[in-house]
Design a protein around this nucleic acid. Sequence first.
RNA 1: GGGCCUAUAGCUCAGUUGGUUAGAGCGCGCGCCUGAUAAGCGCGAGGUCAGUGGUUCAAAUCCACUUAGGCCCA
Length: 943
Amino acid sequence: MDDPEKIDFRKTLNLPKTDFPMKANLARKEPEFLRFWEDNKIYQRRVEQNRPNSKFILHDGPPYANGHLHIGHALNKILKDIIVKYKLMKGYYAPYVPGWDCHGLPIELQVDKKLGSKKHDMPLPERRKLCRNYAAGFVDIQREEFKRMGGFGDWDTPYLTMSKAYEAATVREFGKFVRKGYVYQGKKPVHWCPSCATALAEAEVEHADKTSPSVYVKFQVSPGEAAKVCAKAVEGSDKNDKKISIVIWTTTPWTLPANLALAVNPAISYVFVRQGQNDILILAENRYKALKDELALALEPLHALKGRDLVGMQAMHPFIERASQVVAADYVSTEDGSGVVHIAPGHGEEDYKIGLEHGLDVYAPVDNRGRFTDGVAEFAGKFVFKANEDIIETLSGLGALLKRQDIVHSYPHCWRCKKPVIFRATEQWFISMAHEDLRSDALKEIDRVEWHPKAGRNRIYGMVEKRPDWCISRQRVWGVPITLLKCKKCGTHTTDEEALESFINHVSEKGADVWFEKESEALLPAGYTCKKCGADEFDKEMDILDVWFDSGVSHAAVLEENERLSWPADLYLEGSDQHRGWFQSSLLASVGTRKSAPYRAVLTHGFIVDGKGRKMSKSDGNVVSPHEIINRQGAEILRLWVSAADYQEDVKISNEILSRLVEAYRKIRNTCRYLLGNLYDFDPAIVFDPSSLPELDRFALSRLNRLIKQVSKAYDSFRFHEVYHLIYSFCVIEMSSFYLDILKDRLYTMAADSKERRGSQWVLYQVLKTLTGLMAPILSFTAEEVHSFTPAAANQSVFLEPFPKVEEALIDEELESDWMRLIDLRDEVNKALEIKRREKFIGNSLEASVTLYLDEDLRDFLGKYSEDLAMIFIVSEARPADLQNPPSDSGLFQGEVKGSKILVLVERSDGKKCQRCWNWRADVKAGDDGQDICARCKEVLAG
RNA sequence: GGGCCUAUAGCUCAGUUGGUUAGAGCGCGCGCCUGAUAAGCGCGAGGUCAGUGGUUCAAAUCCACUUAGGCCCA
């Protein structure tokens, strides 16, 4: 050092050089790339560039425009983005139009909450305007959040279910259902939230524990009946003195005023059993034991009958003058209760069905606030849940109450206000599943669609097979109106083309608000009169459409209306819960009007759970927020997490998982950085004929092309975790620990412009470009960053590049299998070296000279590689020898390669260490400056 | 309670039509290197394939049940 004469060999080497930072600083630098993409319209340019090519349309399921994004949104949108980017790079015309679901109860409730009591004085159009603004606000928020994740798409022109054009399309599609005769009005019990005063969709109901009174109630059998039907049962007792009663059990005493029947299971056995002095009770035989003590029943039942023998019997309502007939129902079980179910057709789904079968009235004497109507004189005006106690008291006073306790059970609650809901028969609008074979056609279509995973088919099939008619009306304000007017004179609805067309025109011009702003007559064409009676005055239908109808028609409102898109979509991609939601509403909306499914394929992902596999909930405190990850580790890590998981099942996320991914990210990044570092002086204009390259390089190219093939296949089948594993393993196994490690000597020590070094640089260049392209759909930020450092990159952005293409000719099976065998040998040599390292016999592997004692087969195989062995093993010398004549060295390593025994002798090289290339060679001599240098290096330095 | 689904090393994933001692990478432990350096390389230890029972010459793989978990419904 102090000697100025001494050459600093380090300076004579071609060491890697790059400004590409090792530290990614993702959270800080990602926004710069976002700006780059936006400023340069990279997505738009790529889409346009692909316009002449075949289309691939991924139709976005609209998230609800309320609240910030959670990790589930991130999973969904990143998966979509990976697909869109892959298809774009593959050359498909794949515009991605994101959308938002803007109408509906949750937003309305948020707005109502803010308004408080002012809500009642506010005209409807104004409340709707507030809802619109609220939704628009969250569309903006969520849009920014999605964009931050690196997603490509038409963010400036998304589809909104509340836009005029979309609302008009919704009205138009509804009109088609009306014209085709699917739509009918009927009384039916629906989940009803008395607090929100609205019918709720299935999806709007959630189950939670509730404490309810559990009561056993006697329904006395009409005296005449007792004698007839029960003659045998009461034989031997003084029948005239005895009261015979059927025992029912219910947890909703408030439904008793609406009781019209009692259901028994015809197949099971019922017993007559004495209670106290004067009572005989009827209940299921296998409930007798459980209830014996509770109800203070006699020790022995008097008699038993099958349920079917009880059918037709008349019982008397305990406190209303009305008969209640015994009917048969297969679903009645004896798991709890008394084996007899009280039936109120207006207050239960099963009850309703049974009522239909027996011609019972759909009776529901409860108003929209959950209060009894005047129909129930003694409880009129009482809120049903409060009336429970009054009813129980009444029953008790009449001696009809057998038992009362409180139980905690799972009960339906309103998803918004979290209060318990009731079943209540109301006037609703329905789409009939039976009309025009809607159900069977939908089922046929399900089998024409490709479902990923396959189980999705069964899931939606089962649901569509069993689902009831679609209740499409809601008694709320924030939505698309049910555009029907009712003639004031004859009550006929305006279902004709002329009226519906007029409504569509009004809505497309002014938006759906027009329905609430204008008078009925102003919505109709001038001079319009009722088609039935000729009257000209109408009442407006004030119900709005189910939001599932809104989003269900997106195929029509978006795919058909946007000329850049096409119908049907190639793919829908949502969480597996959407088999009941959007996949189904879209299917029905499309089959009903077009007799065909709106999608060719449906891909679903699972739900996100914590590291232990539990679902996330605020109360458990295991919620992971995407913002935190983005701000701490970067959106790139979130994207890598999405890609690494097998999303068709539940996806786990935890700090451990994320930190593993951060490490994997660093490895991929560093591999790219190292490639870049070795290309600082490479001119990509130089083209090499691959066949002229050494085997090692051809092996690397073969592996690289195999990688392209495998990765493409994985992308094509949406198996992104395979993409991740393939790319990552390639970086670690093929590159970092093998090819690149071996190449160091060649790259650093040979003449910068030598054929050998340029050849490997050319290979490294191929590897770099390929890796960048392969990872771009997932690691978009990093791929772009690498691309910006890549020498002579043709395009401004990696997303303007074609996806890497396989060169089949470069995949060489034979070469690969030979080199796999060499790698097996290398593994054995490494084990032998490690032992010597532990013995402190060597440190750096270059200090070693290795002799391999091999059988004839292996020696033959190694023949052509004998010159390359030292390079491959990264030792100073390596030579094959005959296994038959091993030395008597006790330190011989015994190994095995594919069943062949081998022996490895590790010695210290007897040469000297070259101060420049660090190899130990016999030809190392002191140079002019007195430093040891090998002949090869001397030649390089001589130029 | 019903429908659909899942369960392989600490983590993420492989395990072809059931067929030799269940694989990979990471992490972990130990070590080397200091010319990828908040890097790189090597070696090693980790699994009764959720459990139980069955079919079979043979089961992680097929069947049944159980347990745990997820989605959807009741």
